[in-house]
Nucleic acid binder design. Structure first.
Lengths: 328, 328
DNA sequence: GTGAAAGCGCTAACAC
DNA sequence: GTGTTAGCGCTTTCAC
């Protein structure tokens, strides 16, 4: 900047004012400055600016794994909004590891980020409390943080479970199984509850034999389907708590010579890319991934503007994507 | 830091020295400082440090789209190494748009990143030249930048094309089709060349009828397969230039009552997650995505250490992942 | 409409 | 082993 000022024959503060368009400067001086900037390839130093202004245009995004398509989509939406508002995103993968997460939180604090977008890696009550003590703008995504009054946005898993079950019931199914996953994680539990409540609402008994355990992976869906189909009275439809298990379920059924959807209807959850390409294409409950990212970012920006607003918690509804794995 | 110094009863420089472990400090003072830091929740200001030291620990990563699984994996590997070396990654999506890319490059320069990892969005000769003029450490990934002597790492697409074709030939196939994609992009063209050369090396004639156009999408693979199977003498095997088209091809074959692999063998390229879950699971040529990211990051770190080393260009070999879509 | 000067929080060179 | 000081490149207040 000094160089520019010298070459343009004006003061440093004048250069600053044309760079930031911050007060009236004679047309003459402005042109001089701009030419000098171009000639020297000058780019202002954002570090110095941030130090002086005591605010950065960086925001930290902590996710378990950006290669997981679910988080990849969310990250994408976040980056989009960030770019539009000229915030840049620092990518942090926690691998669901609390220490790694803590290390990244420290790093983000030291970098003086303007805010943090946060998918918790396990029980993160303490980190969040610490962040709040520091008045760091923060939005929690996807997984709740117990005992924290904090901005958050997540999917309405319960409504998604309802949607899937409702669809199967409307198609005439009465024996509807569920491939569940680790009930300690809230999303899966909520999907299950949506399933049970919808069964009940339609006068269908809940049969524990029709609930098979899974772990969100393909293989567990395959195994669960085998177990279900071995039942004396096998189900005619399956609600799998995610797409990977649904695809595993279809594979198992096909391997036994069953036709999907004629002999077994299958509905998934998530709507990952894969779902369009299976045979038959998978009917599934879509999580609003882009919308989650977009909203989280908007909420963070709002929080930065008004640090004292009451915490906001949003639940985004899912949408049923009807393809061919349930017929209909 | 002043606060810490005051509370600990030492000078600011002493605090700095315990924070950075930079010179001998009495055990006493060290304890005082650490206690004060903990009590005050002090975290050093990385902005100030970077400004003073004239070097940051940020690196910029520009990719077309982090939600594309290929780049997601690469990004993941980059982040991993970065974390281990305490560099943080600024995530930039160009959407293949030169203006967006230029905007991000400017942003990264202003942020004074220590280096840039770069998947070019189209012909980026100028940006790269500008970056080099500024002596910005830079590694180009995946797509070559014409006319630039610069560090780069990419897949050996040619060798991948060979691998796929070779595999099919060894399985006894003689009429081997290819689903290609836009020959203007170099990777696809190189895969094709690998295919042709391998055919020739085995005394098999190249038949233009057996090459069907695609655009990397599922639907184009489906269409291409239909076209191929309508031929008077249809192929017995297909090499699709990516997995999505391979899966489309399998769908089309299945829809006609053909069995894969008995009636038609199909091999893909990329080895995306999806490939494990198709029916039958897809035999495919795996790109070393993690390895690309890892190597790119290592090369960037090396370049930062030695700005004047001659540019290095690496081609990483692919690997054939045999599943079930080719039999064998 | 312009310029001079202080200071953001840190580090490094230099004295003691 | 410790403290003092100058200065990284910017913004902002103040004086003109």
């Amino acid at each position: 900047m000094r160089d520019v000022a010298q070459r343009a024959g004006v003061s440093v503060s004048t250069v600053s004012h044309v760079v930031n368009n911050t007060r009236a400067v004679s047309a003459d001086a402005r042109v001089q400055v701009q030419q000098a900037m171009a000639a020297l390839g000058y780019k202002p130093n954002a570090l110095a600016r941030s130090l002086r202004r005591q605010k950065t245009h960086s925001i930290g995004m902590i996710v378990p794994d950006n290669a997981n398509p679910f988080f990849a989509e969310i990250a994408r939406a976040i980056e989009d909004i960030g770019f539009a508002r000229s915030y840049s995103i620092i990518l942090c993968n926690s691998d669901g590891n609390l220490e790694k997460q803590a290390a990244y939180v420290d790093l983000l604090i030291e970098r003086r980020v303007a805010g943090i977008l946060f998918v918790a890696a396990g029980v993160s009550t303490e980190v969040v409390a610490d962040l709040q003590r520091r008045r760091m703008p923060l939005v929690v995504i996807d997984r709740a943080v117990p005992g924290a009054a904090v901005d958050m946005v997540q999917t309405n898993h319960y409504q998604g479970g309802q949607l899937a079950t409702q669809h199967l019931i409307e198609l005439g199914h009465r024996r509807i199984a569920c491939i569940a996953a680790g009930s300690d994680l809230s999303p899966s539990a909520e999907r299950m509850t949506g399933y049970r409540d919808t069964l009940a609402a339609h006068g269908l008994a809940y049969d524990p034999d029709l609930v098979a355990p899974g772990d969100f992976q393909f293989a567990s869906g395959y195994r669960a389907a085998q177990q279900l189909l071995d039942l004396p009275q096998p189900p005619t439809a399956v609600f799998a708590c995610n797409d990977l298990m649904a695809v595993g379920c279809i594979s198992a059924a096909t391997a036994r010579g069953l036709r999907v959807p004629q002999d077994l209807a299958v509905v998934g959850f998530d709507d990952v890319k894969l779902a369009s390409f299976t045979n038959p294409p998978l009917t599934t409950v879509a999580q609003p991934k882009r919308e989650i990212g977009r909203l989280a970012m908007e909420m963070l920006l709002a929080r930065m503007r008004d640090p004292d607003a009451p915490p906001r918690s949003e639940r985004l509804d899912t949408r049923l994507v009807v393809r061919q794995s349930c017929g209909g």
